[in-house]
Simulated scan of single mutants.
Amino acid sequence: MGIEALAGVKALTYDVFGTVVDWRSSVTREGGEFGRAHGIDLDWQAFADEWRGLYQPSMEKVRSGQRPWARLDDLHRESLVALLEKKGVTGLPDDAIDHFNKAWHRLDPWPEAVAGLTRLKKRYILATMSNGNIALMVNMAKRAGLPWDVILGAEVARAYKPQPETYLRGAEALGLKPEECALVAAHNNDLHAAAKVGFKTVFVLRPTEHGPGQTKDLAAEPGIDLAVADFQDLADRLGC
């Protein structure tokens, strides 16, 4: 496969956490600010990794039907409170916890992301295809200058990736067939799930998403339509 597989694509839909934004460095920075403000001395990089580690288990409870639908902001907050308690941090005011929880609204984009997306927007519909809720995605985009045409993903579909409804309802909302949409992501499992419902797939390399010792998602797996170095490379390949 290759660039020809994307010939009929009208919309590029994007995984966001790790693909568009550097969550690890950003949450570490926010943790440091939170710690200084409240006199809490923790390894904030390790804290960021642990908080992110609760991401999939919290969503799996929704996917499996163990609990009703809940927005990612709410799942993140529950995980944050549990993690702070695990670290012996209690008694903080709700507004302080709420502010730190919204660290996920203040994530920094990868260095080339905004410029690459801006080029791609000239030719394609650009949409999120994220498990992040709408307010989170909008606030992040406003702060970082991410030029989305529309926010799609879990809250619109009321389903968390990799459930097929997330991708299919996104395509439906755009009035497009699945094969007219491509998912751009740094995670092979996300891309394989999208491909199963007819999306075209683009792997983008983010080799330090999980830090310098990252061992997974260092290359596109078989079955992915196209692999690129970053969004500028994708814009070059698509003639934008």
Rank of each mutant, 00 (worst) to 15 (best):
G91R: 12
L92H: 08
L92Y: 03
P93G: 00
P93W: 10
D95T: 15
A96T: 14
D98V: 10
D98Y: 03
H99N: 11
H99L: 13
H99P: 13
N101T: 14
K102Q: 14
K102M: 11
K102G: 08
K102R: 15
K102T: 13
A103C: 04
A103W: 01
H105L: 08
H105A: 13
H105I: 04
P109D: 02
P111Q: 01
E112G: 13
E112S: 06
A113N: 06
V114L: 05
A115I: 05
A115L: 04
T118H: 11
T118D: 11
T118I: 06
R119S: 06
K121S: 13
K121G: 12
R123N: 14
R123I: 11
I125A: 07
L126S: 14
T128C: 04
S130Q: 07
S130Y: 13
N131E: 12
G132M: 12
N133L: 02
A135Q: 13
A135F: 09
L136S: 14
L136T: 15
M137H: 07
V138G: 06
V138M: 09
N139L: 01
A141G: 01
A141Y: 05
A141K: 00
K142P: 04
K142M: 12
R143I: 08
G145C: 00
G145D: 04
G145R: 02
G145Y: 03
L146I: 11
L146A: 05
L146S: 03
P147H: 03
P147N: 01
W148S: 05
D149R: 03
I151M: 13
I151N: 08
I151S: 07
L152E: 09
L152H: 11
L152P: 11
G153N: 04
A154T: 04
A154V: 04
A154K: 03
A154Q: 07
V156T: 14
V156K: 14
R158V: 12
A159K: 02
Y160E: 02
K161H: 01
K161D: 00
K161S: 02
K161N: 05
Q163L: 14
P164A: 07
P164W: 05
E165H: 08
E165I: 12
T166Q: 11
Y167L: 13
R169M: 15
G170W: 10
A171I: 05
A171G: 03
E172W: 11
E172D: 15
A173V: 12
A173I: 12
L176R: 02
L176T: 07
L176N: 06
K177Q: 15
P178R: 07
E180Y: 04
C181Q: 06
A182K: 00
A182V: 03
L183Y: 07
